[in-house]
Design a protein around this nucleic acid. Structure first.
Lengths: 222, 222
DNA sequence: CGCCATTTTGAGTTGTGTCAACCACCGTGG
DNA sequence: CCACGGTGGTTGACACAACTCAAAATGGCG
């Protein structure tokens, strides 16, 4: 993931913003923040919009590492060069902090280093969960879990609220390590069972969040 | 993984050992270093032997997170409590460092915090590779890659050298997210094709490392 | 309205899991 | 020294979820 949900390190955002006084950068949809292999010069905090971190393998397969929502920080945990591409799915705004500023800040304020280590630990834990998700869960469990995570990020945990789906099926498929056909079939299944609605391509509505949660957890309800 | 290969942070081992003057702990096979949920009080550096980090899920399935060889450090990247169990596959020796000592050392020497962050970045990168391995690779690619990684750790990159296989099939299966039957079938396939030998349960010999590398990389050679 | 990209649906294939039987190794005890 | 029992490993038959290839349908946009 390489992305830290802000909850992972409460209180860290403030000191980080103080490190640098860049005004923030406004970007349009499809704007590329950086490519895999570029010098990892900066950290990006998503202010508005949705960003996509993805990686293309030699054989052409693609892995969408993460979708970054407001509050997420992109670019931490790389070495000298970025390990994936990052671009904008929607118009948005990012707060840019130079890498060097971070390291300098750590030297002056060791407790900041500790906080970053705590963030790293949280990041590692979430990668753990992700690798469990990818290797042990069925297509339906993955999709249900994904839709729930979108609902959580949007702060819409109730039934019947419309939730944006800014990524296309191919993005979802590459994120969950499935094919677009499998994603589509399971979407349809959820819809015909009355668990979700698909009013149009760019959004969905959870009609029965309890059953969706069951599907995300349990092997045998598909 | 939560384990740092020593290569990830050259020069870090020395300062870490200086933090605490514990003499090292000798343990027998099957000794448990810690359980999931225990207070994460210490870091363990493997001096000799092979250790296993694993996690059991509510439904009884198990994931072997990593195998730790001499030089690897176990216990970093957890929060307040360990996130998996760790026990010894063989008799061995570990160097124990109290967690508090690490954090104290960071306060006094900020550059140590930077090093640890670099290690964390390396750790995150290896988790990345692992999640690619688990979700995009076939059983044969996984197994071939696993055997190659064992050869690498043992420093035996040439053909016809006997390499220890201290873990049982079930451990391998749970590490690669496969069943023991699938592991076994692919082992047999490698043997009948003359790519490896299996002189006994506890070891293997690579007969044709070039072909093994091809299998670890390429989708279509199985 | 009509075009094009995206999504959905359908039909058939395949790799891996499941369940079950069998085998081989190895320590134990007579 | 060998028979025995048990654990761990291998092999076989079958099932099924997800993939592949192909075609149809949908939706957005000029």
């Amino acid at each position: 993931m390489y992305l830290f949900p802000n909850a992972a390190a409460p209180g860290l955002n403030t000191p980080m913003r103080h490190v640098s006084y860049e005004p923030g950068r406004v970007v349009g949809a499809t704007t590329v923040l950086f490519h895999e292999g570029d010098d990892a010069e900066a950290l990006y905090e998503v202010v508005t919009g949705v960003f996509r971190a993805s990686k293309v393998f030699p054989d052409g397969r693609r892995q969408v590492v993460a979708f970054a929502y407001p509050g997420d920080i992109i670019g931490f945990g790389h070495g000298d060069t970025y390990r994936f591409d990052c671009d904008a799915l929607t118009p948005g705004k990012v707060q840019v902090t130079a890498r060097g500023d971070i390291m300098r800040a750590i030297r002056n304020r060791p407790e900041l280093g500790e906080k970053l280590l705590t963030m790293a630990a949280g990041e590692i834990a979430s990668m753990h969960d992700r690798s469990e998700l990818l290797c042990r869960k069925s297509a339906m469990e993955r999709l249900a879990g994904f839709l729930l995570s979108l609902a959580g990020r949007a702060g819409k945990q109730e039934n019947d609220q419309r939730i944006e789906l800014p990524m296309c099926r191919a993005d979802i498929a590459d994120h969950l390590a499935l094919t677009i056909e499998t994603v589509s079939r399971n979407m349809t299944k959820l819809r015909t069972r009355g668990i979700i609605d698909l009013p149009n391509r760019g959004s969905f509505v959870i009609r029965d969040i309890a059953r969706l949660r069951d599907l995300a957890e349990c092997e045998t309800l598909h």
